[in-house]
């Protein structure tokens, strides 16, 4: 059977979990390993760590978080942020992560996707696509990089197709228009990306309530739904989210 995964996302800045609105205005949400352990206990299907300081210097901080998480947490987890090479990915994977997520570096140099897939297998390679609605590209969804600050002129739908061709094993799609707004996923964007790529699709950006998770799976066609702040600040537990989805008829692991 097909089941839909629920994935808490932890944005990690200098060893702490933070969460912002539209990628700015950060607010402290705790220790990443403590949160990861709690989400595992509550039934999270996977975890994502995004190292949002990664472009700058302190890579060892996230390696330490990964290593400590791997001691405690026996569900899959992905690490993204600042991974630019096979060697960057190797360090993260050797520390205990299961997958790496690439975004800016892959958009700038698409061959990176193939290099990672050849070295570690496609199942290890998540291509993150941050997109916004835009008139600049045919599909109306344009890729943005550098934490949403830089417009690329790349069509998100074509890029998803290309990423799969190059060896991506999963696509993590974030609507930058919705991120932090609590208005729900951009379902049209999800459907557009999902129809272009035949690898698992993770929906991200905009979750404000449990119904949004149901919509992402049912109307957006997502294979996994990712959320951050609704979990971090104690609004809902992961268990409540999954119970709600199950009640709505979405197959989830309970």
């Amino acid at each position: 059977m097909r089941s839909v995964r629920v994935i808490p996302c932890l944005d990690v800045d200098d060893g702490r979990v933070v969460k912002g609105v539209n990628f700015v205005g950060l607010r402290d949400a705790g220790d990443p390993v403590e949160l990861a352990t709690r989400y595992d206990r509550e039934g999270a299907d996977e975890l994502v760590f995004l190292d949002i300081t990664a472009s700058s210097d302190d890579r060892d901080t996230i390696i330490d978080v990964v290593r400590r998480t791997a001691e405690q947490v026996f569900i899959p987890f992905t690490v993204g942020g600042g991974i630019r090479s096979v060697e960057d990915a190797r360090r993260i994977l050797r520390a205990g992560a299961d997958k790496v997520s690439v975004m800016t570096a892959a958009a700038e140099r698409p061959a990176l996707i193939g290099e990672l897939a050849a070295e570690f297998g496609s199942q290890c390679v998540v291509v993150a696509i941050d997109a916004r609605r835009s008139d600049a590209v045919p599909s109306g969804f344009e890729v943005f990089t550098h934490g949403g600050r830089r417009q690329t002129g790349i069509d998100a739908v074509g890029w998803a197709r290309e990423a799969e061709r190059l060896g991506a094993g999963e696509i993590l799609q974030t609507s930058m228009d919705r991120d932090g707004t609590r208005d729900g996923f951009d379902l049209e964007m999800l459907r557009a990306i999902g129809s272009a790529a035949n690898v698992p699709l993770v929906a991200s950006g905009g979750v404000g309530g449990l119904e949004h998770l149901v919509e992402g799976a049912r109307e957006g066609g997502a294979d996994a739904v990712l959320a951050a702040s609704i979990f971090h600040f104690g609004e809902f537990t992961v268990a409540e989210a999954k119970a709600h989805m199950a009640q709505a008829g979405i197959p989830v692991r309970l």
């Binding site: 059977m1 097909r2 089941s3 839909v4 995964r5 199942q123 999963e170 035949n198 690898v199 294979d223």
Partner: peptide, 11 residues
């Protein structure tokens, strides 16, 4: 007609 990889929890 399934997504490959199967990347999920299954029973």
């Amino acid at each position: 007609d399934v997504k490959r990889p199967q990347m999920q929890w299954n029973r």
